[in-house]
Amino acid sequence: MAMSKRKRAQYIRYGQYGLLVVVAGLVAVLADWGQIRRAFFNTDIAASMFPNIITVALKNTILYTALGFGFGLALGLVLALMKLSTVAPYRWIATVYIEFFRGVPALLVFIGIYYGVPIAFQVQFPALTTVMLALGSVGAAYMAETIRAGIQAVPKGQVEAARSLGMSASRATITIVIPQAFRIILPPLTNELILLTKDSSLIYILGLFREQYELTKFGRETLSRSPSLTPILIAGLCYLIITLPLGYLSRYLERRTGGKKVSVL
């Protein structure tokens, strides 16, 4: 008596559920719950992190990300326009920049700007400027490609209508094309913001004052005083406070714009 394919698939599915129940049961019985709670949810350590993790660390993470994003967006727009320029050397410069900064680790850029630039040029940037330049110059490379794709997704007829009304090429770009391009790329741009939020943790390698700590550095510093995973977990949850809503926002915007896909690259 051969079992039908559908019947067999059903039994296999039941088997999977059974296996899960057994494993979960074993873990519940064998695990040292006291140890786990001390490691992950040490309430004393968690309590000691407040309110500074919010008022200092979370605030700084948002501040650093905003600075980097603002600078990156401005530079990214310039790069996108250079990449679409009719002047060939502009295109070359933009391409080299984008390929370089997308191809090297962000950490290397941080080190270069914080440790390399002072040695080479005898200029020491304050931490805030370093973060803005480093996060911004990496973010710009990614955003430039997104913005370029957005500009190219604006229908040609929009420019023709603008030009036929007497607008110059640059006036049409500023007044008509760029506002429409940003509407199109709002979802991918939100994703860039999420990536940048996480990359802001790289400031960790810089020498900072206590009041300049962001989430990762704050978590690491608490960890060195309290041998528990709790600080890392709390810091992680704080990142999620930023990134989860942004993720939902991005998906919502994508649905609202009809999921119009913009090809990046």
């Binding site: 229908p155 929009q158 023709e160 209508a161 030009r163 009304l165 110059s168």
Partner: peptide
């Protein structure tokens, strides 16, 4: 040409209203 175009109105097949 930009100033000359202000005196020449154009209407397109696909309307081309500024969608934003």
């Amino acid at each position: 040409i930009d100033s000359a175009r202000t005196k020449i109105g154009m209407v397109f097949q696909s309307f081309n209203l500024f969608s934003h």
